[in-house]
């Protein structure tokens, strides 16, 4: 099995989400093979799930002050602060042998790439349904999936470092008086690769480990490539029309 492998470096939130969707379009059209992509966020960003309310989840003023991008994803799930992390996306036709029709099972299959990658770094992790990867009972990776045009798009993050206080400075909490307790609770439930290993693990180091991890989990040869001109142009279009558009970001 052969996958195209893209490492597209740092992008804005709107561009990153636009390129995931552009890749889905080209795989759906048969113009590209199944694709694994790794990327980062510059500037840092908060993404919210498709069904979340923007203003009730995100402190937009705080994000603006901190120069943090805000974007609504095409996928469900919760709010994510994208800072020191590795983000991946994987696009596979729904009828591909790798992808079970059952959504829950397919999360497990695709998250094995994350688990194998963590294993290569020395972090033993497990899948925690519906969409998390955990180590020692703490979440280290969140993942989200959508199915469109006959393809599965799953993207997810691996926390390389985590600063819960910084994250909560950008998010709203349901009850302000419970903010302190909530932050302490999240600190207990979330961890990072660097915290687990007791040393700083950066993007470059993690890239090699997760590339190897996904290759093993997908039983695939990863063929390094660049996003095509067409994909980059579509990504810019989709970013402008959708992910940078207040009509999309404020739809809930």
């Amino acid at each position: 099995m052969r996958f195209r492998f893209l490492e597209t470096g740092a992008g804005t939130a709107a561009f990153n989400m636009g390129l995931d969707e552009a890749v889905l379009e080209s795989v759906a059209a048969g113009a590209a093979p199944p694709t694994l992509r790794f990327y980062r966020w510059e500037p840092r960003a908060v993404s919210i799930g498709y069904f979340q309310g923007l203003e009730e989840e995100v402190d937009l003023d705080a994000c603006a002050r901190a120069g943090v991008d805000v974007v609504r994803r095409a996928t469900g799930g919760g709010a994510v602060y994208h800072a020191a992390e590795l983000t991946y996306s994987i696009v596979v036709p729904e009828d591909h042998a790798l992808v079970p029709r059952d959504v829950l099972e397919s999360y497990w299959i695709l998250c094995r790439g994350v688990i194998e990658g963590l294993g290569r770094l020395g972090v033993k992790a497990d899948f925690a349904p519906l969409n998390d990867v955990i180590t020692g009972g703490r979440k280290v990776s969140g993942n989200a999936q959508t199915r469109k045009r006959g393809c599965v798009l799953q993207h997810g993050t691996v926390l390389l470092e985590v600063d819960v206080d910084e994250m909560f400075g950008l998010l709203k909490v349901p009850q302000e008086k419970l903010r302190g307790k909530l932050i302490e609770d999240v600190k207990q439930r979330v961890t990072s690769v660097s915290r687990e290993l007791g040393r700083t693990v950066g993007y470059a180091e993690s890239l090699a480990a997760f590339k190897e991890g996904f290759a093993i989990a997908l039983a695939a040869e990863l063929a390094p490539a660049e996003a095509t001109e067409r994909e980059l142009a579509r990504a810019a279009e989709i970013a402008a029309d959708k992910y940078a558009n207040p009509a999309w970001n404020r739809k809930r």
């Binding site: 799930g49 979340q52 969409n131």
Partner: peptide, 27 residues
């Protein structure tokens, strides 16, 4: 997490908003 707003006007459900960190396919 499930958040639901129900807005009534003249005894009818004028607007309902269902939000949260759940997943639904197709969105």
């Amino acid at each position: 997490l499930l958040k639901l707003d129900a807005e009534y006007a003249l005894g009818r459900l004028a607007r309902v908003s269902i939000r949260g960190d759940f997943f639904a396919h197709p969105e």
